[in-house]
Nucleic acid binder design. Structure first.
Lengths: 187, 187
DNA sequence: AATTATACATACAGGTCTGTATAGTTTCAA
DNA sequence: TTGAAACTATACAGACCTGTATGTATAATT
């Protein structure tokens, strides 16, 4: 049986490097070196860099999703409260010491061709996020729920993006205030 | 005197390739080949790929800025109308046949280190956009103008991002509706 | 006519990249 | 204890990268 901890170790180091430096900027040799692993061990667990990257994206998806949803749930309360909690959780994410921006925004930006597997994976994940917010909106009984869902989702992406670009330090707080006005106005 | 048309030619081809494929993915050899120019001609006009990229970013900035501001101005009207026109112009941009997303979002994503010259350049440009929207808001005489400016700016970035990610085909329209509600509510 | 600036084609230096080949070593279970 | 699976180290193939070197052609200027 393959030593699973080695595979985990490689994937953990690779994820960190992909997040920090980008995918194209991170070579297999660096992953090998920082994982303290032989090159053949990496290629034993991942048939190619492509597969390593796809594993990274999948893992990133699962981890972020779990963290995000459970953080929102933990704050609980009414559907409206949970909807607003989204922005509180965003704010927490932004100030985490290891915040490196959204991996999917960065990956989709680096590989912006519609048909590229990395773009497709990133797109898929963002579809989930959009639908997750839409499902929270559905529980709120508002007018124009589709438009509201779309807007709140764009506020999320906008907050992430402006925080990444370092053009809006108060992104999460302001997005929350705006969301509150919009929800209230359509209730 | 250096043949300016050659320099322009190189920069035009390079810009197209950077926009389509990304910066790291575009090699000097490809720029040379598609410019139908000798390699030494490129290096005669641009001392390094770095300088070529910085020229590309500067040019992109100037061009986009000119196009965007003049498009908003052309629609004219009251300060409020001009603020909403921002989202109409965004919508026009999205459906342009050569739309490749925001070059600065992509560049900042590909080179996300705070100190990287490409990131700094992209950041600078986005600061301009943020301030431009803030200046439109200032002319509107609203309550909480700072928060409103921040929000409307995030809606712009959010609309661009979600359109790029292909998760929100109606990004511009919905962002406009949300902006309208927010402006009205704070007037 | 001679000089200078620009662009040309080609080759290559020196480094990086992904992936493979090979041979030796550790680990662990039967 | 033996044998297979997993891991290690090293070297290298072949492609790509940026940037340079060299020598030639062309066209404008002096």
């Amino acid at each position: 049986m393959v030593n699973k901890s080695k595979k985990e170790q490689i994937l953990r180091v690779a994820s960190e490097l992909f997040n920090k430096q980008g995918i194209r900027a991170t070579g297999v040799d660096q992953v090998v070196a920082e994982s303290k692993v032989a090159k053949m061990t990496l290629y034993n667990h991942f048939p190619s860099k492509d597969e390593l990257v796809l594993s990274y994206l999948k893992r990133q998806d699962e981890q972020w999703r779990d963290w995000f949803e459970s953080s929102v749930d933990r704050r609980g309360g009414t559907p409206q409260n949970r909807l607003l909690a989204v922005y509180d959780v965003l704010g927490e994410w932004f100030v985490a010491p290891d915040f490196t921006g959204c991996a999917f925004i960065k990956t989709a930006s680096e590989f912006s061709d519609d048909n590229h597997p990395y773009f497709v994976a990133s797109h898929q994940y963002k579809v989930y996020l959009r639908d997750y917010i839409a499902s929270l909106v559905e529980q709120c009984n508002v007018k124009q729920s589709q438009m509201l869902a779309s807007t709140l989702y764009m506020l999320v992406e906008g907050a992430i993006m402006t925080y990444m670009l370092q053009t809006e330090p108060e992104a999460a707080v302001h997005a929350r205030e705006a969301a509150q006005i919009l929800i209230q106005q359509l209730s």
